[in-house]
C-alpha cells in the first residue's frame, strides 16, 4: 500500500484523489467491511478530501512536543480481589444472533 503524494503549499491545497481505489479496498478488507462499488468510490472521494484537509497538521513544528493520548495521567489502580456476581449468563447470551449450549454459534472458521 503506497500513499500517493498530495499537492500542497502552505495555504493552498489542490484537491486530488490522494487515495487509490485499491487502498480503500485493502483497508476495507483489514476492517472486515464489505463495500459496494458505489461505496468504494464515495469513500475514496470523502477520505481523500479528509486526508487533504488534515495535511494542515504538517504546518506545525511538533519536533519537541510529546503526544497526548489521554489528558489523564496513566495509572493502573488496584482494587481488592473480591469475587462478586456477574451478569447472568442467560441475559448475556440473549442478545446473540445464534447460540447453542451456552455458547455463541458461528460459521466454520477453517475450511
Amino acid at each position: 500500500m503506497r500513499r500517493q503524494g498530495f499537492t500542497q503549499s502552505r495555504y493552498v491545497i489542490i484537491p486530488a484523489m490522494s487515495l487509490t481505489l485499491e487502498e480503500v479496498e485493502h483497508i476495507a478488507e483489514l476492517a472486515r467491511l464489505e463495500l459496494t462499488e458505489a461505496e468504494k468510490a464515495r469513500y475514496r472521494e470523502q477520505l481523500s478530501a479528509v486526508l487533504d484537509y488534515i495535511a494542515r497538521l504538517q504546518e506545525l513544528d511538533t519536533e519537541n512536543i510529546p503526544p497526548t493520548s489521554s489528558v489523564l495521567p496513566a495509572r493502573t489502580p488496584l482494587r481488592p480481589d473480591v469475587p462478586r456476581p456477574g451478569l447472568p449468563l442467560e441475559e448475556l447470551m440473549k442478545n446473540a444472533a445464534d447460540t447453542e449450549q451456552e455458547q455463541f454459534r458461528v460459521p466454520p472458521v477453517l475450511d
Binding site: L19, I27, A28, V50, L57, L60, T62, I65, P66, T68
Partner: peptide, 29 residues
C-alpha cells in the same frame, strides 16, 4: 464505515507517525 476506514489508514504502521502521533502532538499544543 468512513471513520473505520479513516482510523485504520492514519494509524497504519507506515503512516502512524505522520498522522496519528502528529495529531497527538498537536493535541498537546
Amino acid at each position: 464505515k468512513l471513520r473505520i476506514l479513516m482510523g485504520m489508514y492514519v494509524s497504519a504502521a507506515q503512516y502512524s507517525e505522520q498522522y496519528y502521533v502528529r495529531a497527538l502532538r498537536v493535541r498537546s499544543l
